[in-house]
Design a protein around this nucleic acid. Sequence first.
DNA 1: AGACTATATTCAGTTTTTTGAATGCAAAGG
DNA 2: CCTTTGCATTCAAAAAACTGAATATAGTCT
Lengths: 114, 114
Amino acid sequence: MTASYDEGAALFRAMGHPVRLQILNMLRGGEVCVCHMEAAFGKRQAYISQQLMVLREAGLIAARKDGLKVFYRLADPRVDVLVEMALGLQHVGEPETLDNCACPHCATARMEIA
Amino acid sequence: MTASYDEGAALFRAMGHPVRLQILNMLRGGEVCVCHMEAAFGKRQAYISQQLMVLREAGLIAARKDGLKVFYRLADPRVDVLVEMALGLQHVGEPETLDNCACPHCATARMEIA
DNA sequence: AGACTATATTCAGTTTTTTGAATGCAAAGG
DNA sequence: CCTTTGCATTCAAAAAACTGAATATAGTCT
């Protein structure tokens, strides 16, 4: 019974960090690889991975490995709504799909298409 | 722009604590005085006040003073939904209205009615 | 196998949060 | 005015979170 509050609080604590919230918001747009976040946020890769670990342990995101890259997605549809509400109901999130990704892989992917 | 994430994160951090979450959930049922929380949670009064301060500073709750007592309520309707979602969409919250309050004031209030 | 790439983990120092204890303060009653 | 009641604030020690640096791992390619 008190466990419910502990679990709920743990959920909020995991979301209560600017970078993690930004990651979650980005994932609302669909699956994203780590290198994309690295490029989009301008943070060190190790740092991004640390935050991803927190989110993973909280059960907020799930990972899919494809070759060398790892793609992350929201693990729970509730998270989408929670993030949306916290950011003010109108904040659409940067249209940061893989399209404007500056990481080597995404860039070359675009070149192949064009 | 980054401020949005900071603000959202601050919101979640304020909610990311078992006792504070429990307080917020209680307030979903309406206005409640501090003495009621004290009795309902079995925590020291000063401790409750500390958590209330955090919630107040985060803009999640508002206070109304009536004589010696202070009544708190949710300041933002979004909070109601956020708490509800975090607690699992079904958790109704203890039916802890002022009716089952063990604090002196609430107890005598009941006696006056009966 | 060796080198390289993408991501993960560990470690340590710093900052923040948490929480118990003590104290402060304003309103009400006598 | 003095006391009591209900709540708030301050302080300090312990616990936890944050983050930079270094290191590890796993997959790919030659």
